[in-house]
C-alpha cells in the first residue's frame, strides 16, 4: 500500500504546470534567497515553509506558520516596521496570498523599504490534493500586486530571472514583490517544530536577546 507521501507525489505528478513554467521550487529557492542569514524570514504554512526550511534549517531567524492562512504578509509588515534596520523576507504561496490579497494594498500604502514578498506560485493547492488555484485559471498575482500599488514587482519564471530576483529582494528602496512561478511538484522534505509558542520565543530570543 502506498504511503501518504507517495500518494501526494502521485497527485503532484498529475497536476499540470502552466505553459512556460519550468522552474523547480527546490532548485530555485537556494539561488533566490542566497545568504539567508541576511534576512528575518516569515513563511506560509505549506510548501513555502518547506522551501525556506530546506535552505535555512529550523532556525530562530525564521517564523513559519502551521495555520492562520493569509497571515504571512501582514506579519511581515508588523515585523518590518518594528525592525527598520533589518531586511524582512516573506515567502508565501499562491493560495495563501489569495486568501488575504488585500494585504498587498495595505503594504503598498505603507511601502516599507525593508520588506520583500516572494510568492511561490505553483498554481495549485498542494496541501489539499493538488486542486488548481486561481492562478492556474487566469489570475496573475504580480499584476494584482502592481495594481495594489506595490511599485517594485517582477515575475521569475526562468533560471535566468533568479539572479535578478535575488538582487530584487535585497534592494531597500520600497516594498518589493516577486512572483516565483514553479512547476507543481512536491516541496523539499523538511521536518520542523510545529509549536508556535516555542517558535515565537525562539525568534524573539534570537533577534532581541
Amino acid at each position: 500500500m502506498a504511503t501518504p507521501q507517495e500518494l501526494r507525489a502521485r497527485k503532484a505528478a498529475l497536476a499540470e504546470a502552466l505553459p512556460g513554467v519550468v522552474l523547480d521550487r527546490g532548485d530555485a529557492m537556494p539561488t533566490l534567497i542566497g545568504r539567508h542569514e541576511d534576512f528575518l524570514i516569515v513563511t506560509g504554512l505549506g510548501g513555502s515553509a518547506h522551501d525556506v526550511g530546506a535552505v535555512t534549517g529550523d532556525q530562530g531567524h525564521v517564523f513559519s506558520l502551521g495555520g492562520a492562512m493569509g497571515a504571512p504578509c501582514m506579519i511581515g509588515l508588523g515585523l518590518a516596521l518594528a525592525q527598520p534596520k533589518k531586511q524582512i523576507l516573506v515567502v508565501t504561496g499562491d493560495g495563501d496570498l489569495l486568501m488575504n490579497v488585500g494585504a498587498l494594498a495595505t503594504i503598498a500604502v505603507i511601502n516599507p523599504p525593508n520588506l520583500a514578498i516572494v510568492c511561490v506560485d505553483n498554481g495549485h493547492y498542494g496541501e489539499t490534493g493538488w486542486q488548481k488555484s486561481h492562478t492556474s485559471l487566469g489570475v496573475d498575482l504580480e499584476k494584482m500586486a502592481s495594481g495594489a500599488g506595490i511599485r517594485r514587482t517582477m515575475t521569475a519564471a526562468q533560471d535566468a530571472d533568479l539572479e535578478r530576483a535575488a538582487r530584487f529582494i535585497r534592494e531597500g528602496n520600497g516594498a518589493g514583490f516577486v512572483l516565483l512561478r514553479v512547476k507543481p511538484t512536491e516541496p523539499p522534505p523538511f521536518k520542523r517544530n510545529f509549536d508556535a509558542s516555542f517558535c515565537r520565543d525562539r525568534f524573539r530570543a534570537a533577534l532581541l536577546g
Partner: peptide, 26 residues
C-alpha cells in the same frame, strides 16, 4: 507611530503578531 489602514480586520491580528516578533507593540 505607524498608522496602518487595513482592508480587513484580520490583517491587524497578523500585524500585531509581526510587531511582537520585532519587539514592538500594536
Amino acid at each position: 507611530v505607524y498608522s496602518i489602514a487595513l482592508t480587513t480586520e484580520e490583517e491587524g491580528v497578523a500585524l500585531a503578531a509581526g510587531a511582537d516578533l520585532g519587539g514592538a507593540r500594536a
